[in-house]
Amino acid sequence: MKKLLLGVAALATLAFTSCSDDDDTPSTSSLTLDISGLENLGDEYRYEGWIILDDGPVSTGTFSVDDSGALSQISFPTNTAQLAAATNFVLSIEPNPDNDPAPAATKILMGAFNGNSASVNSDNIVVDATSSLGTLGASSGKFILATPTDMDDTNEDSGVWFLDNSSVSAAVGLQLPTLSAGWKYEGWAVINGTPVSTGTFTDASMADDNAATSPFKGTDGNGPGYPGEDYLNGSAAGVTFPTSLKGATIVISVEPSPDNSTAPFTLKPLAQPVAADADVHTAITMGAGPVAIISGSVSR
């Protein structure tokens, strides 16, 4: 009987050892984010991290950001072998819920791993970061106050158009880098602290996306073939039009596309207050905006 019991115990030990040897559960390591400057995307979108391997991207998980800029999660358990083999880190903006396992086009941060860390920034949202206009910080711009969509010359300070009329004929007013897929520019007039959109666009030499459908413009055409807006009809954010833009601040932002927010996104490469005595029909030069880049680091 004693020998039988010993035999059973030996078999049990062997079985346990065999199960342990066959446990193929992959080990995980922590991927940690140290990023500031991200904004609250609301309930319809989430940020999602990705590590890039030779055979494609692997998600590291999603997170949200509150109104103070704090991330809901900064450390993410990630397959150890995949994390060690990763060459780059990418942060995208994804719909919530998201049925597509691949990264969205709206990639806001990117950087290559150097050892156990990666410096990431938003320069990847432009097509050619090595060109003279390859960063948002190299942007420049001009605009005029005018209302070309009506025949009334008494309210010329109620419209803003991103063009330069310093020469004989109108020319492009904004010098901006070409954006990658998933992003658009948007103009804003911040009136009494409230931002009101002038419309979105991808090419500063063409009219913006709402040129023909703007609810604020006059009835005499769509205006010149450049981004801009006449605030002549209706109202927005408690402001009734027409309204003078003197004292307002004119802003160019970079927006995710699609965009679920009626407010400007974090990235604002250009901004310019309009002086109370600003002349209409005269080019006004824009200054640097408050945020031209978001940056941070990722460690593994």
Rank of each mutant, 00 (worst) to 15 (best):
T130Q: 14
L38D: 07
A283M: 15
I93F: 09
T149W: 05
A271F: 02
S27R: 11
H281K: 15
K246P: 05
P26I: 00
V274Q: 00
A12W: 12
S169F: 12
N40K: 09
L136Y: 14
A181G: 12
S197L: 01
A84M: 06
P224R: 01
K2W: 07
T25D: 11
M286P: 13
G115C: 04
D21V: 12
H281L: 14
T213K: 09
D43M: 06
P242M: 04
L109P: 05
Y45R: 14
S253L: 09
I51T: 14
N124D: 11
D157M: 02
V8P: 12
T17D: 09
P215N: 04
G221R: 05
D98G: 05
P264W: 03
L31S: 02
V8G: 09
I250Q: 03
D279H: 01
L145T: 01
S244H: 07
N88Y: 10
G218V: 08
G296Q: 06
A292I: 01
T62M: 09
D203A: 05
T249L: 08
D277M: 11
D24Q: 12
D23Y: 05
T266R: 07
T106M: 10
S139A: 15
P57G: 01
L5Y: 04
V196W: 06
A170Q: 12
S261H: 13
V251M: 12
A181I: 14
N165G: 15
A211K: 05
F16R: 10
A84V: 11
G223I: 00
P26F: 06
T262R: 09
H281E: 13
V280N: 10
P242D: 03
S214C: 05
N165T: 11
S166G: 13
T266W: 03
N155P: 01
L174P: 14
L14E: 05
